[in-house]
Simulated assay, not measured.
Amino acid sequence: MIATANRNMALLALAALVLLPAAAYAHDISQANRAFVEGIDGPAFLPFFYLGAKHMVTGIDHVLYLIGVVFFLHRLKDVVLYVSMFTIGHSLTLMGGVLLGTGANSHIVDAIIGISVAYKAFENMGGFRKIGFTFDPRLAVLAFGLAHGLGLATKLMDLAVSPNGLLVNLIGFNLGVEAGQVIVLAVIVTLLNLWRRKASFGKAAFAANVLLMTAGLVLAGYQFTGYFAS
């Protein structure tokens, strides 16, 4: 039993080491995608839908946050509720940010996203309860959803996206993000449900959230460093 627990811890540590460098570049858009998007002039719903879905599926920081959000949610209606709060938040700032031209420094936004990962992991560990801090977790998910959406909007505005067909393309991108989120959640919830059936879940859950919090703090630290160095 001890050997199994140690092996699980080692695998979790290895996963963290693999994910941390990727998390630092979680919002980067490849040069090929950048050139393709900047070459579009007019409505192009499907390409933007694909880009939004790809950005969510490969956005490690988004994935880490979603893992934290659903980590201890057992009922489907709770998963739907919390994910809906997150979706409302990032849809508002994604759509509104681009249409109103309201951006922010990408390093600061990505740092806040890293903090959101660390915050949720610390909450999962019972950290806030121990220090006597209480805040409605649904409102926290909504608030961090706003930050995640602002990050998406900032990246889109960094591209020379044509104003011709902007609304259609923006809707396509947003719906793509939602489709990617559904795919990611289906995988996460399935794996968590399988893991919860194992005796190791109770013992390793705390360690998993420690690693999740570490990943968030590393991401935030990396982005703050980039901000002050720029």
Rank of each mutant, 00 (worst) to 15 (best):
F173R: 01
A16S: 14
N174H: 03
G202R: 01
L46R: 04
L175F: 11
F224P: 02
G172T: 01
T93F: 09
R75V: 01
G59Q: 05
F144L: 04
A143S: 04
F135W: 10
A104M: 06
L150F: 06
A121K: 00
V177T: 12
A24T: 13
V79M: 07
L20C: 15
D61M: 06
F86D: 00
G221Y: 03
A16G: 15
P43R: 12
F122N: 06
A121P: 01
A147V: 08
L99S: 14
D28Y: 10
S116N: 06
L146Q: 00
G103H: 07
M85G: 02
A229P: 05
F206I: 14
I115S: 00
P21D: 09
T214G: 15
M1G: 10
R75Q: 09
F48I: 07
L100T: 11
V161G: 08
D136I: 10
L167N: 09
S230G: 15
K54G: 11
R196I: 03
L192G: 01
G126C: 06
L51W: 07
N193T: 11
H27F: 08
N174R: 08
P163F: 07
V218A: 15
A16L: 14
N6Y: 14
I108L: 15
A23R: 00
T225I: 15
T87R: 00
F206D: 10
D28I: 15
S230Y: 13
T93Q: 10
G127C: 05
L146F: 08
A143M: 13
V187K: 02
A208L: 10
V98T: 02
I115E: 01
I183N: 09
H90I: 11
A53W: 02
W195V: 12
A13V: 13
K77W: 12
L64H: 06
M157C: 11
P21M: 10
L66H: 03
M157D: 04
G42D: 05
W195M: 15
I171S: 04
A35D: 15
L51S: 10
A179I: 08
Y227N: 12
A10E: 10
